[in-house]
Design a protein around this nucleic acid. Structure first.
Lengths: 334, 334
DNA sequence: CAACGGATTGGGAGCGCTCTCATAAATCAT
DNA sequence: ATGATTTATGAGAGCGCTCCCAATCCGTTG
């Protein structure tokens, strides 16, 4: 039913080869012939069979996007959709398509196999939250071009990231400069680089201001609302007067705990979040937070991947985007 | 570099055909032979080339997921990730893969071409928000198996949906039964079926309770926070004592408008939202809302699609999931 | 004992495309 | 005018798989 190269060739009175040349932009085609063929293609709405092309040529114009499904937090805040949107924009612009893989542990081996040996992908973008993600490991050992979203502490891989260290630092410094004495933090999971880096930023800010790092003012969360709520309850007895929460979703949970405990924000406890999710501006009080350019991050990843596919042997490349502190009322600065 | 059927065949001392049979679960294989072949496959981590299989057999095990990118609201609340997650779960379980397409208007024609003529897809799930989505139209005219998420008022197509009419009805009735006299609504866009149905539910509830439908108590939003805020400001002069807001994101906006105007919730104005997004429980006051089983909806869509792929000529099938009213404080019922 | 049938297996064709090579036509240098 | 080079096109092979048909083997049956 669908048309083939041969059909187009017949209609344009040329050979299959010539049609192929036209489609792939080969320069060795007579201008007139090209016009003729392009005409037929447009008129019949012809689309070359992707599978056949893939088989014959090896390249496919399809990139994989791998997201670990274990991270439930990803599905409660808009990080993930924004990321995808950024990637897809860049994809559309470069005439590529995306295959999506949510890797649940049960299917991990299959996913790896399909990605590496299925022969369908030109490259992969992997939003690898856990540092020791098996898919990442497999990818790293293979020669499949790929880009990691979020830097990796040990592996020498291509990545794009936001400057989480600096972001955590900015947030904490802001609270410190406002005169807060006991600045606590609810961190992200310490097996994810974003969680680690934001926490390191917190530590460095304390150091820079000559404040002691009090272990009782540090609790680890996992980016979920629930863990923010519990974290805040753990923190409360130690009387913090400010908290840097490593993402907005946890900040919402923290806010709930504070509200229940009758603690006023920002008077008694100031709060700074991270992400600037849309709801942040509309919390009560509006949340001061660190904004990260998530859409841009996705687009940057895609651009980098295309570059790597084009130039497979180039040295690993990194791209780090900056964050911005959005001051609202929860930090009590105004 | 990657292995082929032929390689496996050689190692197992059988023919390419036999290996193919084993892989595809053909019963006409000697038990012993099967074991032997499966062994080699497992040992070498062999994965048949998807492109080649697709080319030879026509079927691919890949389904397309089409989401119109125009709908910005999709990216501010977790509807979309939850949907994807539901679909992917069903996909993993059935050994299928997903290609993702966000259709921006600029690339619509290309997307349609690739989906229909690329030869790579076994079927398509389309979350068609606008009723007159061109991709939907094209799909409907083609013989590509597809399932629509959200029913369609005119087209006879396969779909899964939640019972938005009933949901809107339940929410409105709840307010009415609480004794509210002037129940307003901020609707979703009236070119999306979800927006339409929830509004119809509102109308039917009024009717059932013999309340007049007052046009000044109805404003149309577009599912964004901003439109909820503006909608509420439009409504305020007409002194509603309750509002059914067609999604939680708009409810957050409405809440902000009420807060700014110094109107107390739920004392002066009661509020019910729709979606039960995770933040809903943590707003101030916690939001009464209609919960829909989004993940299940995605899984149901995938299951239906698999069914249709298997039985292409069966009559169109529909599946409607029910909603649940989650009562919290914003409706003032307790 | 020849003919027969089912259970297994192997081989060939072909899916629609790209790529290399051969050919033909056109251009250039000598 | 002849050979050499460039430009434009076509033909054939082959990517890795599935599917169909033929071949083989074995146990049955008349």
């Amino acid at each position: 039913m669908p048309l083939t190269l041969e059909d187009i060739a017949k209609m344009a009175h040329v050979s299959r080869s010539t049609v192929s040349r036209v489609i792939n932009g080969d320069t060795n085609v007579n201008e007139e012939t090209r016009k003729k063929v392009e005409d037929v293609i447009r008129r019949l709405n012809f689309q070359p069979n992707i599978a056949a092309r893939s088989l014959a040529a090896g390249r496919t114009g399809i990139v994989g996007l791998v997201i670990p499904a274990g991270v439930t937090a990803i599905f409660t805040d808009p990080y993930f959709p924004q990321l995808i949107q950024g990637i897809m924009k860049a994809c559309n612009a470069s005439d590529h398509s995306v295959m999506l893989w949510l890797t649940e542990a049960d299917y991990e081996r299959r996913v790896i196999r399909q990605i590496l040996y299925g022969g369908l992908l030109s490259g992969v973008i992997i939003a690898s939250n856990p540092i020791d993600d098996p898919v990442l490991q497999a990818l790293h050992k293979s020669k499949m071009p790929f880009v990691l979203i979020g830097r990796h502490p040990n592996l020498d891989v291509n990545y794009v990231d936001v400057d989480n260290l600096n972001g955590g630092q900015k947030a904490t410094l802001h609270l410190l400069r406002l005169g807060r004495q006991r600045v606590a933090t609810i961190t992200g999971p310490q097996n994810m680089i974003a969680g680690i880096d934001r926490y390191q930023g917190y530590c460095q800010a304390l150091q820079a201001m000559n404040c002691p790092l009090r272990p009782e003012l540090v609790v680890e969360g996992d980016f979920t609302e629930e863990s923010g709520y519990l974290g805040m309850r753990t923190l409360l007895p130690h009387r913090p007067d400010a908290v840097f929460v490593a993402n907005d979703t946890m900040a919402i949970g923290a806010l709930r705990a504070l509200y229940e405990a009758g603690v006023s924000v920002p008077q008694q406890v100031a709060l700074v979040g991270y992400d600037d999710m849309p709801a942040a501006a509309h919390l009560n009080p509006p949340l001061t937070t660190v904004r990260q350019p998530i859409g841009k991050l996705g687009a940057a990843a895609m651009e980098m991947l295309l570059e790597i596919i084009r130039q497979p042997k180039s040295p690993t490349s990194h791209r780090v985007l900056q964050t911005e502190l959005i001051v609202r009322m929860s930090c009590g600065s105004s």
